[in-house]
Every structure is written in C-alpha cells, then in structure tokens.
Simulated scan of single mutants.
Amino acid sequence: MMTFKPAAALALALLGAGSASAATDPLGDFLGTYTGSLSANLDFVSADARFTGTHFNLSLKTAGAIGGLPGSLYVIGINRGAGTPRLNVLSDPDLDPSVRWDSLAVLLPDGTLRVVTFPPAGAPTITPIFGGAVVNGDTISASVPVALLPTRGFAASSYTFQAWSRLRVNPAADGLNSEIADFGPRIFAAVPEPASWAMMIAGFGLAGWSARRRTPRLPPARA
C-alpha cells in the first residue's frame, strides 16, 4: 500500500486546484426550436471545465438522473482558435451565431467518449474512448487529453467550451437542430491560480526536504 506524507499529499491535491469555472444554467430552459421529450436529464443545471496542463476535465450536471432515454447524448463544443458557427449551417432552424467551435467532446450515457476535431478542409477526425465518459447520477464527466485537441490559434488554457444536449431521432447520426434540447453556459477552463501554484511548488519543496532528512547517513569509509 502506498502512503503519502502530508507535504506530498498537499502538493498532489493542489495539482487539481483551480479557479472556480462552474457556471449554472436555468432550469426548464429548453430551446423553443426543440421538438423532443422534455426530459429532466436533458436540462442542464451546471457545467464545469478545468485545465490540468495535460487534460481538460469536463463535467455536466442535469436536472435528472442521466440514462434511460434512448438517443440522448451530451456534446461540448470546443473552440481551439478556429471556431465557426457550425450549428447555423447544419440545418434549419439556425441557432445562436456566437456559438463557435472547431472540435467536440461527445459524452454518451453508455460511457463512450468521442473526441471530434474538424480540419480546415475534409472529413473530421473522430477518436472514440470507451469508458471515457463517467455517469454518476445526474452528472456526466470526462477527462479529455490535450494531445487530442491541438491548438488552432488559442493557447490550451484559453480554449472555450459550450455544452448542449441532444435527443437523436436516428441514434446513428446527427439530424436537425430541432433535436438540440438545451444549451449550457459558455465557460473557460479554469487553471490553477497563482497562489495555488506557489503553494504547490512549496509543497514539492517541503516533500523533497523531508525525503532528504529521511535518507540514512552512511558511516565514513575506512582506508
């Protein structure tokens, strides 16, 4: 069993620290253009994104337990710097032109995560990660490697995110925008605050000092 000294534990805990990035969303605000079931598990309550340096930790909370609604899925549009208002060109009705993205994280209730990136031209790249989405009651979350989302102009810490829920009529393919149930708030990924970075560095330093103190001293060599 691995054990941690207090200083090391503090440093590890601070690796996940960040400024508050969670944003709330009003209850019952289904889009007027949506024509599907008004199920609570398609109604966002809050969204959160955190940047760890190697991953984006994304989390969505809904008004009801996730699962049990065939065709339901949760999409997070990500703007890496080349975002376009793609939801306005897919089909009628047009949606908010300020919603811009060039990649997606698609979270499915069965635990599948799909990371989709759109090149300047040609077909998108889709990377499925089975078990990459985690459902816990009314919350679905995923940890997306930064390596799957290379920059298109923004620094990774400046990517923007916006989520929407969808109820597909055809589970095998996206359909009309009338399948989009709710838009969550637009958020920026939180990064560790300067004070957290300073505490983390101090924690690592203290851990190293403690380790040196525990290093046994060898007796002097005899000629």
Rank of each mutant, 00 (worst) to 15 (best):
G131H: 02
G131K: 04
G131Y: 01
G131S: 00
G132D: 00
A133P: 02
A133D: 05
A133T: 03
V134I: 11
V134L: 10
V134S: 11
V134W: 06
V135I: 04
N136G: 12
G137T: 00
G137P: 03
G137F: 02
G137H: 02
D138E: 08
T139D: 00
T139A: 05
I140F: 01
I140T: 08
I140G: 06
S141I: 01
A142M: 04
A142F: 04
S143G: 11
V144T: 10
P145F: 06
P145H: 10
P145R: 08
A147Y: 09
A147I: 12
A147W: 10
A147E: 15
L148H: 06
L149Y: 07
P150I: 08
P150M: 05
T151H: 12
T151Q: 12
T151D: 12
R152F: 14
R152E: 15
R152W: 13
G153V: 08
G153D: 11
A155Q: 12
A155T: 15
A155P: 11
A156Y: 03
A156G: 14
S158E: 15
S158Y: 15
Y159W: 12
T160P: 13
F161W: 14
F161T: 10
F161G: 10
Q162F: 05
Q162L: 04
Q162T: 13
Q162R: 10
A163V: 08
W164M: 13
W164R: 10
W164Y: 14
W164A: 15
W164D: 12
W164N: 13
W164G: 13
S165V: 00
S165R: 00
L167C: 10
L167P: 09
L167V: 06
L167Y: 08
L167W: 07
R168S: 11
R168Y: 07
R168G: 08
R168C: 09
V169G: 14
N170E: 11
N170G: 09
N170F: 10
N170H: 11
P171W: 02
P171C: 05
A172V: 12
A172K: 08
A173E: 14
A173Y: 13
A173D: 13
D174M: 11
D174C: 09
D174L: 15
G175E: 02
G175F: 00
L176F: 11
L176R: 06
L176S: 14
S178F: 08
S178K: 08
S178W: 10
E179R: 07
A181V: 05
A181E: 01
D182L: 03
F183P: 04
F183V: 04
F183C: 02
G184L: 00
G184N: 00
P185V: 01
I187K: 06
I187V: 03
I187R: 04
F188D: 15
A189H: 04
A189V: 06
A190N: 03
A190W: 00
A190T: 03
V191H: 10
V191A: 15
V191S: 15
P192C: 05
P192L: 05
E193L: 12
P194I: 07
A195K: 12
A195L: 12
W197Q: 15
W197V: 15
M200F: 00
